[in-house]
Design a binder for these strands. Structure first.
Length: 693
DNA sequence: GAGCACTGC
């Protein structure tokens, strides 16, 4: 049945060059004689018109960039076209990446269903903890871009793959950017590898510049010289409804207040349909809900029938799921959300969107080595994405709480790629492990600042992961690069081997790698604080985690036990998974699993070996618990969620900083100054004004 | 006295 379709090398489609030199295809008529209804449905997707064009471009161009709006069907259809065209023949694999696990699973099962095959046979997927593929049977593999990066450590040229499609490239996650940089390198060594970069925005031109092969790579008489060096760009329309955009007439002073009045006016004036509001974080969201609730009480008529639902990642799972429940008859659902609804979650039935124009974004300061979370204006690309959420079921409306003038003339066109806003230690070690020696010269889709790179190299050097020539050390550097966690955590795990506490440390590492093991929230603060005290250890949060883990195991991993103790059950399950993975890796890199029983001194020493750079001392005579970091004399405080909050020991080490109005240390453990010197003499002796002396 | 969102052999 597939024989009617065009195959590589069998016939040529028509191509036109436009004035910019990129390639546009004029679709020719397609015969469609399939009878299955699923096949019919596939043919109704907008991307179907471009099937032959896409296959022709992939055949003739090293890189094809596909701009597809939501609903175009690109993620599910293009991989199937590639199979139909034979790119999976002869033991070759077609790989399709997504930034998120959930998306990988969803797209893979959808495609398997459309093809009428069992998931895990011809069509499979791989995400962390889950490999649903069968060697030599699977020809189409969906995976997260992070997993593909890990695969490159074993097979740097990705020799098994004939085509790799990188989906959602416009999101510009760190993994996607590293992957794009590496794929470009691979392409020079393996011109037969085809890349498809799928993106939702028209930023395609800069992507195209990035993937353009330089002339000197071309060998005139090479058999590959027929291959186009210029990436092709093809744009596929989406299938969504018109969204009418309304702007604020004047700049908005207080966007929470503006959200409240906009929601009320939508409710008063507009026909039925749910509302999605984008705010920045839990504080804003709770404030808006509080104000709207007040309105309901004071002015029942105007606001009756509103169902107000908050949505953010920290919300317990059950409450998150409420936003998916159908709206009761005669009511209007108002979901007030963070950015989670912009990319990660899709809500059905939204007709009205209210866009505050802001989100919380991470920024990294390489001088202080601190990542900050700040409220910042979103980009035009984000604003369009938010507005698009209103047009999924029928024509909708978007209310932007900023002026049109601002949108057109002041709003940045695109967001700053994550790699330019982050600490780069993990990223640098991954490149080093792949044998990229000249990190500063690496060809990125968007280059991080040299300061951030140099800071990352310094941190890795101080951890003993890189040597004087910035090469991975043996064995520590190679071991650290094998562990899929922050290098400081990885170093802590490796150090636990010599202190005989690897069992405890991998538990701690697993807990530190999830958001939080505690359930908290506004109504239950007192209860959850009391529950926390039942596990609290004098050494600090890390040892407290060991107590929680022990209790969880003794309860037979019971969800009721978690509920009773205000422990996050989903989180604990994740801890068990991560812990199992770490056990396998530890075994592989030669770490002996051993428990130190009750010797918490060993645990503190191992933590210190990884996190000595995060040591702080309490300011003498400080009445408000102010600490200063030993390294940079930064002012920091113990986070109120820590068991050491208000205990304020003289010397502590923190796992991470969160900055709001103050810098808060999250996950804190006490430390002896002598251990610090022992763990990192090179690090602390260099500093003259050192309080340790 | 307080937490944008993702991710990884």
């Amino acid at each position: 049945m597939w024989s009617q379709f065009w195959k590589p090398g069998t016939e040529k489609a028509r191509i036109l060059e436009d004035e910019e030199g990129s390639v546009i295809f004029l679709s020719n008529s397609l015969s469609s004689s399939s009878s299955s209804s699923s096949e019919k449905q596939r043919q109704r997707l907008p991307v179907y018109k471009y099937r032959n064009a896409i296959l022709y471009l992939v055949e003739t161009n090293g890189t094809t960039i596909i701009v597809g709006e939501t609903g175009s069907g690109k993620s599910t259809q293009i991989p199937q076209y590639l199979i139909e065209a034979g790119w999976g023949h002869g033991g070759r694999l077609i790989g399709c990446t997504q930034p998120r696990r959930l998306a990988v699973q969803a797209v893979a099962s959808r495609v398997a269903q459309e093809m009428g095959v069992q998931l895990g046979e011809q069509v499979g997927y791989t995400i962390r903890f889950e490999d649903v593929t069968k060697p030599d049977v699977t020809v189409l593999k969906f995976l997260t871009d992070g997993v593909l990066l890990r695969e490159m450590m074993d097979d740097p040229l990705l020799t098994k793959y004939s085509v790799i499609m990188v989906d959602e490239a416009h999101e510009r996650s760190i993994s996607t950017d590293i992957l794009l940089g590496l794929l470009k390198k691979i392409q020079r060594r393996r011109p037969e590898l085809r890349l498809i970069i799928a993106s939702a925005t028209i930023e395609a031109k800069s992507m195209s510049d990035f993937f353009r092969m330089r002339k000197k790579c071309r060998e005139p008489e090479n058999e590959n010289s027929r291959l186009q060096l210029e990436p092709a760009i093809l744009s596929v329309e989406g299938r969504s409804f018109n969204v009418q955009i309304n702007y604020a007439e004047e700049p908005v002073q207080d966007y929470v207040q503006a959200v409240v009045s906009t929601v009320l006016s939508i409710h008063e004036r507009e026909s039925t349909g749910d509302v999605l509001v984008f705010l920045t974080g839990q504080d804003d969201i709770d404030a808006a809900i509080h104000l709207l609730n007040e309105e309901v009480q004071n002015n029942g008529k105007r606001s009756s029938g509103l169902v107000l639902l908050p949505l953010y990642s920290g919300l317990p799972r059950a409450e998150q799921e409420l936003v998916f429940s159908p709206t009761p008859r005669g009511k209007r659902k108002v979901v007030i959300s963070t950015n989670i609804a912009e990319t990660s979650l899709t809500l059905e039935g939204i007709v009205y969107v209210v866009d505050s124009g802001f989100s919380k974004q991470r920024f990294y300061n390489p001088v202080s080595d601190i990542e900050n979370l700040v409220v910042a204006p979103i980009s035009r690309a984000s604003a369009r994405q938010r507005a698009g959420r209103a047009g999924r079921v029928r024509p909708g409306k978007c209310y932007r709480l900023y002026t049109e003038e601002y949108f057109l003339n002041q709003m940045p066109n695109d967001g700053i790629p994550e790699i330019q806003r982050s600490n780069l230690v993990s990223c640098v070690i991954q490149l080093k492990a792949l044998g990229i020696d000249n990190i500063l010269g690496f060809d990125w889709p968007a280059s991080p600042s040299p300061e951030a790179m140099i800071r990352a190299l310094e941190v890795l050097y101080s951890l003993g992961v890189l040597d004087d020539d910035a090469k991975l050390t043996s064995p520590i550097g190679f071991q650290v690069s094998e562990i899929p966690l922050d290098p400081m955590i990885a170093k802590m795990i490796i150090a636990s081997n010599q202190f005989g506490c690897s069992e405890e440390i991998i538990t701690i590492a697993a807990v530190l790698s999830i958001q939080s093991i505690w359930i908290s929230g506004r109504g239950i603060q007192k209860e959850s604080d009391e529950a926390k005290l039942r596990f609290a250890a004098a050494e600090g949060d890390h040892v407290t985690f060991l107590n929680v883990y022990k209790g969880f195991l003794q309860s037979n991993k019971s969800s009721q036990w978690c509920h009773k103790n205000y422990v996050n059950y989903q989180g604990m399950r994740k801890v068990i998974e991560v812990r199992q993975q770490l056990k396998r890796i530890a075994h592989r890199i030669g770490i002996v699993l051993k428990s130190c029983e009750s010797d918490m001194q060993a645990v503190r020493k191992a933590v210190t070996a990884g996190f000595f750079a995060n040591a702080c001392s309490l300011e003498p005579y400080s009445h408000n618990g102010m600490y200063k970091t030993l390294r940079g004399s930064q002012e920091v405080y113990i986070h109120p969620s820590s068991v050491l909050f208000r205990v304020n020991p003289k010397w502590v080490i923190y796992n991470s900083l969160v900055s709001t109005d103050r810098q808060y240390m999250r996950n804190v453990i006490t430390v002896d100054p002598s251990c610090l010197l022992e763990a990192a003499p090179h690090f602390y002796q260099l500093q003259q004004s050192n309080p340790l002396f």
